[in-house]
């Protein structure tokens, strides 16, 4: 972690001020998570993590002890305390994804990139982290890469995704098996005939 100074700039500054203004006088500490998130966004090009200097700045801005900021920052996996690669792959390993093959996805990523959970590739392109449920269970298994969800994965799709990201090709977030959101695979399966239930007669 660096010891240099940190200042919110540009739109991040505006967003931080807006977050603080949301809370009544004396309750500014409520904005800590929003500020940590903004600080991380502002540092996106530089490893997408929150530096010690940023946390010290936030503790000053919100008039709260540094250790309290640190507690919040270390509690949430969304806040990175170490630099991550250009593409931060957050693999969901919780029960529904696990049952649908998250462990195979992890094995695919690990063999493709040669890294384990919590590690970054040498070229600083990819970081793999295993996280708890990301709330996309109906499209399990899934990963989050930076800000986007990639769902309905298979090891082959996952490897292909990594290839395209590495080359800089465009990728489409969302379900990777062609379905729309979480509709059944192969189109609607039920209520094919008869009146739609919400239509009277």
């Amino acid at each position: 972690m660096t010891a240099e100074n940190f200042e919110f700039t540009g739109k991040h500054r505006a967003e931080a001020e807006r977050a603080i203004a949301k809370y009544p006088q004396g309750r500014q500490q409520s904005a800590v998570l929003a500020l940590l998130f903004e600080a991380q966004e502002q540092n996106h090009a530089n490893g997408h993590y929150v530096t010690e200097a940023a946390m010290r700045k936030i503790s000053d801005m919100l008039d709260m002890p540094y250790i309290r900021v640190m507690e919040v920052a270390s509690f949430f996996t969304q806040i990175n305390l170490e630099p991550v690669g250009e593409f931060h792959i957050q693999l969901c390993g919780t029960t529904p994804c696990m049952l649908r093959g998250a462990e195979d996805i992890r094995a695919a990523i690990e063999s493709k990139l040669g890294i384990h959970a919590g590690q970054t590739t040498q070229d600083r392109k990819f970081t793999l982290t295993e996280v708890e449920c990301l709330g996309a269970c109906c499209n399990a298994p899934m990963v989050q890469i930076n800000d986007d969800y990639f769902e309905d994965l298979t090891p082959a799709i996952m490897t292909d995704l990594i290839d395209r990201l590495a080359k800089g090709d465009a990728v489409t977030p969302g379900p990777q098996n062609g379905r729309m959101c979480s509709e059944p695979e192969g189109g609607p399966q039920t209520l094919q005939s008869g009146p739609a239930p919400q239509v009277k007669n």
């Binding site: 002890p65 250790i67 309290r68 640190m70 507690e71 270390s74 509690f75």
Partner: peptide
């Protein structure tokens, strides 16, 4: 003196 905390989870 707020110097001890519970880190991680």
């Amino acid at each position: 003196v707020e110097e001890i905390g519970l880190l991680n989870r």
